[in-house]
Every structure is written in structure tokens, then in C-alpha cells.
């Protein structure tokens, strides 16, 4: 069954779109990632113009993350206070990252830097997560050879200390804020939502339980993508509501299933899946880099989330 996408101006099989949304929504609910890094290339492969794919993907992430947040909220996995700080930091970092990209593009060959940043960051985060989780699951995690007391003392001296009850942590406002500025910058440079980076950062650096990290990350993704959708719709006229809602039909169901499945998995198991996905994307990128492309020209993708 084919449906015509009014803004994209092309016809696509309805079930392909719902199915693609379902797979990405499942990952979103399970792992707290937006899924933009998977869905946008998939939509371009289906034949959606890149600009429309990126903008409409943001809109469907609003639906998927709303569904995921609601489900995680019922399970007590959303810390709104932490979410608000993350959102503020992520938006600030995203803005800095976008400006940085403009400067890099003006200097030339920014694409190479973006590609290598993608591979190095995703590979390092994915690899570290995978090794760490395997050690934990085997019960063979070595004692850390560091001096946590000195670090904690330093962090505790920072101003604006606050409790994050759901996360069961106490941090200065500036710790999650500046970490999210960094993640937001990297996310903007890499052109992805940042869930891949945000969840590991929350678990390993902020010591937030993995389930709460996933729920809270979805909360900030919801608002980030709502903002991007509005900007894309008013600036570039690129949001296709029919495309977004069809993807959302699949992704909201997928997100619910993902959120439920996540309850039956240990935090380390969730992180292993996330790490596997990150490493698979890195592997796919490396294969894509060394394989001769079918065409020496490719459509330009603008926007993103």
C-alpha cells in the first residue's frame, strides 16, 4: 500500500515507513536513544530527500520520546530536575557545536573531521562500555586504580550543589550542565541527537542508574526535538507531517515494547546492547569509507537533530 508524502512530494510504501519507525522506536524505548543516527540514513535509502528525512525524523522522535517518557514515568525512571539541567546544557552545547561547524566548514574539509570524530567517539564509547559491561556481568570487574576521594572532594566544593532524588545522586548544577555542553557540542558536530553519548555519560560519570538515565535522557530528547521540529518547519519548510506520523505510528508502539523489555534486562545488559549498536554503526561507517561509492555525487542532507 502506497502513500503520498505531501511535503516530500513522493510516494512510499506505508508498511515500510511504519516498520522502520517500529524498529527505531523499540531501540528508543529500550536504550533511551533518539534513533536519528539510524532512521535518517534509512529514510534517505528509501528515497526520501535528505532534508525532509532529517527534519521529519525530528518530528517523529517527539512522538517516540513522548511515548517512551510516559512509559518510563510510570516505572519511576524520569528525573525531571536532572532532565531540565541536561536540556539546558545540551541546548547550549548544541548551539556552540553548530557555530563550530560553520567555522570548520569555512576552513574547509570539515566533513573529514566529522567522520573521524564520529568513528573515534562512538568507537571509544561503545568499546569502553562493552568491555566494562562484560567484566561486570562476569563478576570480574577489577577495582578501579584511581583515587575517588580527591575527585569527590573537588566536585563537592563546586557551588550550587543539589540533590537529584530519582537519580539518587548529589551534584553541583555545573557538573551535569558542563558535561551536557560537551555532549551537545559533539552531538551537533556529529549530526546526531546525542543519546548515544548522553546515556553512558550519565551512567559512568554522573553515577545515575541505567534505567533512570534512559528515562531522563528521553525527557530531554523530547524537548530538544520539539524545538528542532519547530525551527525546521518555520525556517526550511522541511517537516512532512504525514511521514512523521507514519513513522510515529511504528515508533510509539516500538517504544512501549522497548520500555517494557528494558524492565527484564539488567542495566549492564542494556548498555551491552547500546555498545553493540554503537560498534555496529562504527563498523558500517568504516566499511562505507573504504568501499568505492556507487555514485561520486550524493544528495545534500541538511538539518538534523
Amino acid at each position: 500500500m502506497t502513500i503520498f508524502l505531501p511535503v516530500a512530494g513522493i510516494s512510499v510504501n506505508l508498511f515500510v515507513l511504519v516498520g522502520a519507525g517500529g524498529v527505531v522506536g523499540f531501540l528508543s524505548g529500550l536504550l533511551g536513544v533518539g534513533g536519528g543516527f539510524l532512521l535518517t540514513p534509512l529514510l534517505i535509502f528509501i528515497g526520501i530527500p535528505p532534508t525532509i528525512a532529517a527534519a521529519s525524523d525530528s518530528c517523529q522522535i517527539v512522538a517516540a520520546s513522548a511515548s517512551g517518557v510516559a512509559a518510563h514515568f510510570r516505572f519511576g525512571n524520569v528525573d525531571y530536575k536532572m532532565g531540565a539541567v541536561l536540556l539546558l546544557g545540551g541546548l547550549t552545547g548544541g548551539r556552540i557545536g553548530v557555530e563550530l561547524i560553520h567555522v570548520l566548514r569555512a576552513l574547509g574539509n570539515a566533513d573529514l573531521l566529522i567522520t573521524f570524530t564520529y568513528i573515534v567517539v562512538l568507537g571509544a564509547v561503545g568499546g569502553a562500555m562493552m568491555i566494562n559491561c562484560i567484566w561486570v556481568l562476569r563478576g570480574a570487574l577489577p577495582e578501579p586504580h584511581r583515587k575517588p576521594v580527591r575527585r569527590v572532594t573537588f566536585l563537592e566544593k563546586l557551588p550550587l550543589q543539589m540533590d537529584f532524588p530519582r537519580c539518587r545522586v548529589r551534584h553541583s548544577f555545573f557538573v551535569p550542565f558542563f558535561l551536557c555542553v560537551l555532549v551537545g557540542m559533539l552531538a551537533a558536530i556529529m549530526g546526531v541527537g546525542g543519546g548515544f553519548l548522553m546515556v553512558p555519560m550519565m551512567v559512568y560519570l554522573l553515577r545515575i542508574p541505567a534505567h533512570v538515565a534512559v528515562g531522563t535522557d528521553l525527557f530531554q530528547i523530547l524537548f530538544t526535538c520539539a524545538g528542532v521540529t519547530y525551527m525546521q518547519a518555520t525556517t526550511n519548510f522541511n517537516v512532512d507531517i504525514v511521514l512523521a506520523l507514519l513513522l510515529a505510528a511504528g515508533s510509539t508502539i516500538g517504544a512501549q515494547i522497548g520500555a517494557r523489555v528494558s524492565r527484564y534486562l539488567r542495566g549492564e545488559q542494556l548498555l551491552i546492547i547500546l555498545a553493540s549498536l554503537a560498534l555496529a554503526v562504527v563498523g558500517r561507517m568504516i566499511v562505507g569509507l573504504v568501499t568505492t561509492p556507487e555514485f561520486l555525487l550524493s544528495p545534500i542532507a541538511k538539518g538534523g537533530h
Partner: peptide, 9 residues
Amino acid sequence: AAAAGFGMD
């Protein structure tokens, strides 16, 4: 999109 997400939930 938000209505679709919350509605589905």
C-alpha cells in the same frame, strides 16, 4: 506527534 506518543502510551 506528542499526542500520538502520549496517546499510544
